[in-house]
């Protein structure tokens, strides 16, 4: 149903090697505008490596990866496992970093930073320092920074693993909202099957290292609300994902 939308993230026979070690692939993958694809797989299977490759932080040994540019963002937005904020700078300056590095003038930076913070529910926090914020709020700042220059795609590398259940659900909702309103292609890495089903249009289950796609699970396109969590659709998709994961469990 989203097959007519433009492809924003693509990997084609992509392999990553660390020295003699095959870390990933070969992998074929596409993520289209307005679509959320979740990567699910065991630790060390190369999920983060694939994200790094798409972000241009990691070279591929063979094959190719491609991330679409948008007008204001030459690279995809990215949220890491840690918020990775500058402790010496305010939330506003942290969020504005991509604009500052792109040489956009300061008044414009602050205007857009405040708008971006408001979108993640942090109105009036532009002047707060990271050490005064909770873990969940720091992650919101990181998310606002990833979205401030309206990228074509958003990469999230197990971003909310350290956040409590309720806070995590709120952050997941922010990602879904950004996907809809900014027409983002979202590629999300997580260990949590429930989080994967909640977020995904499609779940890709990866094998142990070197990570390859073992299964693709489509999640029905129904509203992501409280009822969805207790619906048969949710249970079915989660069960399917768990089955694939346990069938292919690698050495622990």
């Amino acid at each position: 149903m989203k097959a007519d939308r433009p492809i924003r993230l693509a990997a084609s026979q992509a392999c990553v090697r660390f020295g003699a070690l095959d870390a990933l692939g070969p992998i074929d993958l596409t993520v289209r505008a307005g679509e959320c694809v979740v990567l699910l797989g065991p630790s060390g299977c190369g999920k983060s490596t694939l994200l790094a490759a798409l972000a241009g932080l990691q070279n591929v040994a063979s094959g190719s990866v491609e991330a679409a540019m948008s007008e204001g963002a030459p690279v995809p937005g990215m949220v890491f496992q840690e918020p990775n904020l500058m402790n010496w700078a305010t939330a506003g300056d942290n969020v504005a970093l991509p604009l500052a590095l792109a040489g956009i003038d300061r008044a414009e930076q602050m205007r857009r930073a405040e708008a971006a913070l408001a979108r993640v529910g942090l109105d009036d926090f532009a002047k707060a320092y990271p050490r005064t914020l909770s873990g969940g709020m720091r992650m919101r700042v990181a998310l606002a920074r990833a979205l401030i220059n309206d990228p074509a795609a958003l990469l999230l590398d197990e971003p909310f693993a350290a956040i409590d259940e309720l806070g995590r659900r709120a952050l997941d909702d922010l990602v879904l909202k950004a996907k809809e309103t900014q027409d983002l292609a979202v590629l999300f890495v997580t260990h949590s099957v429930d989080e994967a089903v909640y977020l995904a249009d499609r779940i890709l289950v990866l094998s142990p290292r070197p990570g390859r796609i073992m299964a693709e699970i489509a999640v029905p396109a129904i509203a992501r609300d409280r009822d969805f969590l207790t619906s048969p659709d949710f249970a079915q998709a989660a069960a399917a994902a768990r089955r694939v994961l346990s069938d292919h469990r690698g050495p622990v």
Binding site: A55, G56, L57, V75, M78, Q81, E82, N84, P98, L101
Partner: peptide, 12 residues
């Protein structure tokens, strides 16, 4: 901080 370093590298 290596994490922050990645953010700077991401944004070239």
């Amino acid at each position: 901080d290596p994490g922050l370093d990645r953010v700077f590298r991401l944004h070239r």
